[in-house]
């Protein structure tokens, strides 16, 4: 599921850049053709609206699984501010522990929550700019069509920012890559509770 997500996310992001370039939001900044998916805007748009289905279906499975099994509650909560500071300081000193990769540290938890929320926000702002008349109430809630469009762009930058941090840190801790590729180590629930970090 993770790798379907990766592929679909890359499709959504790069095709989104192709659509963005038709009318830039940040004046003076556009993506050169190398970074766009689709020969030109129509194909970027078609990629975007095809990828949409895969993303939504995959996303629903992921959220459904996360909530139904209690995985989110167990792995992502609670987050303590002091723990975040400690992990950031440790990371900046290149001390990335990860003795037990089944336990997320505070920064990981925070980043995963941010990216899950950003993903949901992308769906909501995406629906608003896709159907601004049928869902005009949603558009005015978001502050108007152009604001919704900017928010959709901002959500993309949050997700891309997450991906950069996520991939960089994963490369620092090679053993997580194996888990990412195979879907994670299979451990008994009890060993999880006994893991290194306080959860």
């Amino acid at each position: 599921m993770h790798w379907v997500n990766v592929a679909v996310m890359l499709v959504m992001i790069t095709s989104g850049w192709g659509i963005y370039d038709d009318d830039v939001i940040v004046r003076g900044f556009h993506f050169s053709p190398f970074w766009r998916l689709g020969d030109w805007a129509a194909w970027s748009l078609n990629w975007h609206f095809a990828g949409m289905w895969f993303l939504v279906i995959n996303g629903l499975f992921y959220l459904g699984y996360g909530f139904a099994t209690g995985r989110f509650r167990e792995k992502l909560l609670p987050i303590r501010p002091a723990e975040i500071v400690r992990t950031v300081v440790d990371t900046l000193h290149l001390k990335i522990a990860h003795e037990d990769i089944t336990v997320y540290n505070a920064v990981q938890k925070l980043l995963y929550i941010i990216v899950i929320l950003a993903g949901i926000a992308q769906v909501v702002t995406g629906i608003a700019i896709w159907k601004p008349v049928q869902f005009s109430g949603l558009v005015s809630l978001l502050g108007g069509f152009q604001t919704a469009r900017v928010l959709h762009f901002a959500g993309m930058t949050v997700i891309v920012g997450f991906l950069i941090i996520h991939v960089t840190l994963a490369l620092f801790v090679p053993k997580t890559l194996w888990a990412m590729l195979t879907g994670g180590p299979k451990l008994k629930p009890r060993t999880r509770v006994e893991g290194g970090h306080a959860t």
Partner: peptide, 21 residues
Amino acid sequence: AAPLRLLIWAGSVAAAIASAH
């Protein structure tokens, strides 16, 4: 060019900003 692009994309988004002009 898609596989090449995606590969390079993952590593260096900064380059996109450099080539943006």
